[in-house]
Design a protein around this nucleic acid. Structure first.
Lengths: 337, 337
DNA sequence: AAATTTATCGAAAGCGCTTTCGGTGAAATG
DNA sequence: CATTTCACCGAAAGCGCTTTCGATAAATTT
């Protein structure tokens, strides 16, 4: 406890000198610097972050906002992995994360208002909803920002190479001999979902495979339940697919459940490949083949991009695409002869 | 943007009156209050949180700290669920969460130092490590605090009824006809792990079942991998158990993997029951029977406990135990005849 | 009409810190 | 020896807000 005033009194210097000593200014002698630092250590002095922020207009905080349809917040396994990596990268630089709510002191405010109130130095938004007004508002603001998993030309964005991801999945299935390949897609209002659809279509086209009616089915917003339902209607098709590319691991897990419940076997009767490579993918039975998104790299890169903008005090609008990787496990196999 | 000075200039009142109007003081007339509020809305005025904090000595922030052996941070599925519920409860009251790091501006500091620096109003620690010096330091401090999942008589704590949980698991297995019931335990340095062991022992004792050599095995720190290993040594036992109670769902998933790899079937050959009921438990195959911890309630209760201390400005040291619930799914079944 | 309340407002100090700018004495320069 | 330079330090203003304590004019009471 204690303030620089206490420190000044104890050491006999002015608060100016104390402050300078603590901040390692060059115009205070090594001798007095040492004295002051020692006294600070002795009394367990710590600068008050709020006073510092007020004075310097730097808060060393970064606001984080999730925008996703299911409102699971920090329990979203994919977003969560990104944030964890983002956190590690930013904490190294001295930043703390503030998770925005929309309610402050019984006053309902927008995320932007919240962030302005807290005077964050930058914002990261992990967003699946392109249309979210709040996100647009954040992007339009002057606060440094980076958005993950969404496309935009108005700010720095970083997301996976979903187009290649879709292609990767289809090709893998094709090489295993599959010709009846369906796609349980994410909603088209979601950039990632749309890009994976595109990847799927392009790959099918390139291979020369037609997409039968009903083979491209909307799985909604990536939940297990929606994946399950989509798979069920897929199973009811007159000509059932032998393989299905699912746009997200959670949906894929739901799809697997539907397949099991129908008494079919994976991958003998039907192959399934997911997308994301969330934690649990390697623990379901059979272990899920999937397209891995590099959450580690996405989070870290987003952090770098944001901090760069903060320190340089100028916006940069890049769109960085992170490569994905095919992880072959046990849910995909050769087509039945 | 803008400050109360701007508002004062625009409306013609003093900053005092502006501040009072904004804070709904009684000694400013409705008429001027309306004018000021209107002007504030017009200019998009928002109070600067740092200035407010500096002046009121309330920061409306709560520091959160994880302490767990595996360092997975916010990717820990159980802790994570608790924090999410905690967040919802606190955000309603106007608090923001700050996730503590130990590095601030290239200065390595303790969590307590970090929290003091940020002047948080309260602290929540989700802790599995009883011995953590940092946690002790936090508890000894004067900042309002609540700790989850650990026992302590020096502060408010809230955790699950692990004793009953252990008993619940064993009894369920017993009722299915099992007599050879093993326990893959969490490390004994962890309160939760210890209590579940105790529950297991007591239940076995009450039933009159002996605990064969090697049936109580340390699974370490609740990771999938450790659970798998523990199960493997269990399977190598001369007299293999017909059922195993695992102290955590992640370990249980590892155990299931080991069982599958050994060519055995769940629950036909061996029943397994987990603990936690994390998200993925209902998606593994077979779906995991488990003892559910009420993360929703734990998080919310912790929030209430903490906020109460903050507003009343006095420490309370209660230990609240939240009931658990047996969730029967498909990984447990009657013993083979 | 005088005395007292009441309603409404503002000056000023304070929260803990940073930073500009000027001042002082000692060392270096001519 | 006079002058310039340099190293070191502090006064003061400012960051944006809250809160105490008076002050004033209007309303009420006697």
């Amino acid at each position: 406890m204690g303030t620089i005033y206490d420190l000044a009194k104890i050491t006999g210097f002015s608060i100016t000198t104390v402050s300078k000593a603590l901040n390692n200014y060059s115009d205070v002698s090594e001798k007095t610097k040492a004295k002051i630092v020692q006294a600070a250590a002795d009394m367990g002095y710590l600068p008050n972050a709020h006073a510092q922020s007020l004075s310097t207009k730097r808060s060393w905080t970064i606001g984080v906002m999730f925008s996703e349809a299911n409102e699971v917040g920090m329990m979203h396994p994919f977003f969560n992995a990104i944030i964890e990596s983002f956190r590690k990268a930013t904490e190294q630089q001295g930043y703390d994360l503030i998770f925005a709510s929309r309610n402050l002191r019984n006053r309902d405010m927008s995320y932007l208002e919240h962030f302005r109130h807290r005077a964050v130095d930058g914002i990261v938004v992990i967003c699946s909803d392109q249309m979210d007004k709040q996100v647009q508002e954040l992007i339009q603001s002057t606060i440094p920002i980076v958005v993950v998993d969404m496309d935009s030309s108005d700010c720095s964005v970083v997301f996976s190479d979903n187009l290649s991801g879709g292609t990767l999945a289809v090709n893998h299935l094709y090489e295993l001999g599959h010709r009846l390949i369906a796609h349980i897609a994410g909603d088209m209002t979601i950039d990632a979902g749309l890009a994976r659809i595109e990847g799927y279509k392009q790959a099918m086209d390139r291979i020369g495979l037609p997409i039968p009616d009903g083979y491209l089915i909307n799985g909604g917003f990536f939940s297990v339940e929606e994946g399950k339902q989509a798979m069920q209607t897929l199973l009811d098709l007159p000509k059932r697919p032998t393989a299905v590319f699912v746009a997200g691991d959670q949906m894929a897990i739901g799809a697997m459940e539907a397949i099991h419940e129908a008494g079919l076997h994976i991958p003998q009767d039907i192959s399934v490949i997911g997308y994301d490579d969330i934690e649990m993918s390697k623990y379901v039975t059979p272990k899920l083949t999937t397209v891995r998104q590099d959450t580690e790299r996405i989070g870290q890169h987003a952090a770098e991009l944001l901090i760069e903008q903060i320190v340089n005090k100028q916006r940069v609008m890049t769109t960085d695409i992170i490569p994905v990787e095919l992880i072959v496990r046990q849910s995909t196999g050769p087509v039945k002869a």
